[in-house]
Design a protein around this nucleic acid. Structure first.
Lengths: 123, 123
DNA sequence: TGGCATACCTAGTTGACTTAGGTATTGGAA
DNA sequence: TTCCAATACCTAAGTCAACTAGGTATGCCA
């Protein structure tokens, strides 16, 4: 079970990334996340739908109703703004990940104790 | 400026990782984070101290007062439980990171399972 | 004495997951 | 037909934690 904060932090980039592969609807996205996580993250519908609505209100996704298969579904797809937002989210994530990796590398190699390497020149 | 959720998600692993390098006190930790982020994450004292107190209440860190340099400081260091928690946090993080990387790799190489109708070259 | 950096802390607001429901269709089993 | 599970969508209220906006105190220098 993921910590709530990590789930919150990954929600937006995760859904934007899934929708960047192509159109999708809520229930399907839930199953995608279940597969990606090996069933370990326990995403619920009550988690997903508010996020989708938020993304829509931010203009990052568009939605359309469909009943092609007899069952009504609300399909979502990324807007151009959504694609930009995904890249921003991605860069934020990689930024934090880089910092953590740097710290963990120090711990694994035992080089951290005294001095911090100041290599990051903002890039 | 990091999204609040990402800051929240990284707070615990970040501080645990910093303290895993050795003892540290609040103000110093803030400066460490400032260096790690290139000053881009805007961590404040009002963010840090509650986290430290929470970590202590969870038994992940211990604290001691010191006035070696004339100025009182509260030094924190990891407990054994804190070291275990760090590994758990790390595995959670890497788990999510792995999923995102997988998705992003699909996007970059165009190997997503769904054929997108619109041009993938995207401008 | 005044001002700034250092160094710690907390109350109340805001935002986002979680709990705990609700509505409706489809298809198989009894 | 009726029952049940899976599919498919949604929301209100509780809970938790960052954030805003303060507060207290020491060391150093002009």
């Amino acid at each position: 079970m993921l910590p709530r904060e990590l789930k919150a932090a990954s929600a937006k980039p995760l859904i934007l990334s899934i929708l960047a592969r192509g159109e999708g609807y809520g229930y399907q996205i839930l199953q995608d996340i279940g597969e990606l996580s090996g069933g370990a993250w326990s995403w619920s519908e009550a988690m997903l739908y508010p996020v989708l609505h938020r993304l829509k209100s931010e203009g990052l996704v568009q939605s359309r109703w469909s009943a092609e298969s007899g069952r009504r579904r609300k399909y979502y797809r990324l807007t151009d703004k959504g694609r930009e937002a995904l890249q921003i989210e991605r860069s934020h994530w990689l930024n934090v990940h880089g910092a953590l990796e740097q710290l963990w590398k120090q711990l694994d190699t035992g080089t951290g104790e005294v001095a911090v390497t100041k290599s990051a020149t903002g890039g």
